[in-house]
Amino acid sequence: MTLSVALGPDTQESTQTGTVTSTDVLSAPDIPWNLVIWNDPVNLMSYVSYVFRSYFGYSEAKANKLMLEVHKKGRSIVAHGSKEQVEQHAVAMHGYGLWATVEKATGGGSGGAGSGGGSGKGKGKRG
């Protein structure tokens, strides 16, 4: 069940002068909510990554990147959508035992999904 994050071609580069601050993906009116996953010391990194891959259909690279963001930054926005969509995801995440919340996208976003690429991917923890 993949949630498309890609936006349609409504970014017609409206004749703004100056620098274009990209990543205003979050401020598009039709996708105003975020699904946030929070770090905790219990959930295995491998498990979190597995959930991102199997539930959202994310690639291994994307799942690991988001998982490491949760681990290092304490939280990560892992999906966007309507309020109903992200709430549905939140319940599913709670079902898996992940600590998920929903929040209104602010546009200025803290800890956005696109930032901070972890280099050490797949740092699997052995129990």
Partner: peptide
Amino acid sequence: YNFTTWLQESLVQAMLQSL
């Protein structure tokens, strides 16, 4: 706790392999 952690980790590794 450590036993269940070990068991879950081994299970998830197998599940990742099956993916």
